[in-house]
Design a protein around this nucleic acid. Structure first.
Length: 606
RNA sequence: GGGGGUGUAGCUCAAUUGGUUAGAGCGCCAGCCUGUCACGCUGGAGGUUGCGAGUUCGAGUCUCGUCACUCUCGCCA
């Protein structure tokens, strides 16, 4: 018989009755009836009920066994009497009558309960992550993650991709997020950087003649956390294809994502091909480049209808170059006064001066602004929104940018409050035709996304078009309002690349020094190539229906990028710093904190 | 760095307008119980209300400061 188990805790069935077995696992619960004692023993695979008869010599100590201790039981599988069958358990038709038991690992009193799915303080969960990971929902999320990644690998290989590794210790990339730096021992004063993405390496692999590359790639960025953004590190399904167009990338991703989302969720997934929406259009309709298409509401422009109207607040905005946007919401005119007041408050909370609305309710217009509008204007608005009795139109007026942002927030909020968002579907779309350039805060032309993207009109556009009009072969894939990834057809032509950088104010030497590898590689016959890198953590979040990314990561950091279990980041020994030629120069505040902390220990002696 | 939220027993939460000795469930400890499966029953221990000031006859509650966590803006080519 195996030292620890002949079966797992999820395995035994009626067919095993009368077998002598041994199983090991964690004490999930103890039910002590004075005489007979029941124990639910749990492992990765399931729960099995152990029965301990008073005649057993180890019966006495059982009442002191704590939940979450690990124990090995040897005994016989028996059928439960019909009334005692537990249909909620896969193993519910049998139980094991224990004949021998061995305590493998005793548990102290728990900081929180494992057998119960109860909300629990985040700090405590992270400090005791190994316990947290035993809890059913988190455990299942991590299992889901493993299965999804395994399936992604299968599907990518089936699509003709090769998984390849790229360096973790590499050079700092000059643009983008803050890097994590690793000091070099051999080269005093020099640093490696952890890759923000394997971007340049995968492009180099394409110039090296590999045709389809992918990698479940760790990426490191020293930026602040969000609910859907883990600080420090995350994983991407990084991929790149040679001699490929934008459509080729879309096709592969549609195959893979559609299969993954269909196979690992019961929600209804959009048919492929997914919708393709130009950036300009989504900004106008949804106010964001990651629209949640489950929400049917759209924004429409009503600027001209308010020009010179008697509603001075809006007319004034239009006069000074602003815009008026409207969102038509069908069938909600009967909502309470409080609903509309709350929506106004909400709009104000996201930076709006107010929120206008027209309610066509029971044949009359209820609205704070209707009295300022002519019959004709009201008619035109009705037509614009396609509304009638029982419907409402909301209005936001401001400069274009704030109007767009407020409109997006109001659209989201209305979608939620009116229950318009179907929780049981996955709505995908590609956002295409991103602009190549935009103006930065100082009014200077800057790359709006990836500087390596191919301009759609090639050299012709770069030479002849207003930079702000140039579109790039740059795209995003969005699901239910979550941006899964950006991607692009890359600019593989050195001349085009230099020209593209030139428009943003960088001369060739900048390209050469900042991106020496690509600059060199593209001069020796680079293939046209394109790629994308969907975020693994976000895919799992969507599949697991988790609002927070920590729920799909085994050992996440907290919001301040600390690992509370491993105590990272931590202080290091002086000799380590010396080896690395480093001296730390701390902010005064931190220096004082360290002094204050060390004083009680170092300052007094008994 | 800015804004919002939270902080009360080991855990999850309650505590009327500022008013008696700060409560409950789970967990923990002790006892009872031979068919439960969130077992049940009885009893018990457990609190610097994050921390520090202030207002007040009186503060878990109000004010200020501070710390921690979290959400968010900035940031994330």
């Amino acid at each position: 018989m195996h030292r620890y188990r002949t079966h797992t805790c999820g395995e035994l069935r009626k067919e095993n009755i009368d077998e002598a077995v041994r199983i090991s696992g964690w004490v999930h619960s103890v039910r002590d009836h004075g005489g007979i004692i029941f124990i639910d023993l749990r492992d990765h695979y399931g729960l099995t009920q152990i029965v301990i008869d008073p005649s057993q010599p180890f019966h006495k100590g059982v009442e002191h066994w704590r939940a979450e201790s690990t124990i090995c039981f040897t005994g016989k599988v028996v059928a439960r009497i019909p009334e005692a069958v537990n249909p909620k358990l896969a193993t519910g038709e049998i139980e094991i009558v224990a004949e021998e038991m061995e305590m493998l690992g005793e548990a102290k009193v728990l900081p929180f309960q494992v057998a119960k799915e109860e909300e629990c303080n985040e700090t405590l969960r992270l400090e005791y992550r190994f316990l947290d990971l035993r809890r059913e929902s988190l455990h299942n999320n991590i299992i889901l993650r493993s299965k999804v990644i395994a399936r992604i690998r299968e599907l990518m290989v089936a699509e003709g991709f090769m998984e390849m590794q790229t360096p973790i210790l590499t050079s700092s990339s000059p643009e983008g997020a803050r890097d994590y730096l690793v000091p070099s021992r051999v080269h005093p004063g020099k640093f490696y950087a952890l890759p923000q993405a394997p971007q340049q390496f995968k492009q180099l692999l394409m110039t090296s003649g590999f045709d389809r590359y992918f990698q479940i790639a760790p990426c490191f960025r020293d930026e602040d956390a969000r609910a859907d953004r883990s600080p420090g590190e995350f994983y991407q399904l990084d991929m790149e294809m040679a001699f490929a167009t934008q459509d080729d990338v879309f096709e592969v991703n549609e195959h893979v994502l559609h299969k993954i989302f269909t196979e690992f969720s019961d929600k209804q997934v959009d048919d492929i091909p997914f919708k393709r929406l130009p950036f300009k259009e989504v900004m106008e309709k949804y106010g964001t480049d990651k629209p949640d298409l489950r929400n049917p509401l759209i924004m429409q422009d009503a600027t001209e209808l308010f020009r010179d109207c008697d509603f001075k607040a809006f007319a004034g905005v239009v006069d000074s170059g602003g815009v008026v946007k409207t969102i038509a919401a069908k069938g909600c005119a009967g909502k309470s006064r409080k609903f509309f007041d709350d929506m106004v408050k909400f709009a104000q909370s996201v930076g709006s001066k107010g929120l206008g609305y027209l309610r066509w309710n029971d044949g009359e217009i209820q609205s704070p602004i209707a009295k300022f509008l002519s019959e004709e204007t009201l008619g035109q608005l009705k037509e614009l929104g396609g509304v009638g009795d029982g419907d409402v139109m909301f209005f936001i007026a401001d400069k274009l940018k704030p109007t767009t942002e407020i409109g997006a927030a109001v659209r989201d909020e209305l979608g939620k409050r009116l229950g318009l968002i179907d929780p049981d579907v996955f709505k995908f779309c590609w956002i295409v035709d991103f602009p190549m350039y935009e103006l930065d805060d100082d009014g200077k032309v800057e790359f709006s996304h990836n500087p390596f993207s191919m301009p759609q009109g090639g050299m012709d556009d770069l030479l002849n078009k207003d930079p702000l009009e140039i579109l790039a072969f740059q795209y995003d894939i969005v699901c239910n309002g979550t941006e899964l990834s950006s991607g692009a057809v890359r600019n593989h032509n050195p001349e085009l690349m230099i020209k593209a950088f030139g428009i943003a104010g960088y001369d060739e030497s900048v390209v050469e020094t900042k991106f020496p590898a690509l600059h060199r590689a593209f001069q020796y016959g680079a293939p046209p190539h394109a790629g994308i890198a969907p975020g693994i953590d976000r895919i799992i979040m969507l599949l697991a229906d988790e609002p927070n990314i920590r729920e799909v990561i085994s050992f996440p950091m907290n919001q301040k990028a600390q690992d509370l279990l491993m105590n990272a980041p931590g202080h290091v020994e002086h000799h380590q710093l010396r080896d690395l030629h480093l001296k730390v120069h701390l902010p005064k505040k931190v220096e004082k904190e360290i002094e204050d902390q060390s004083e009680p220990e170092g300052g007094t002696t008994d």
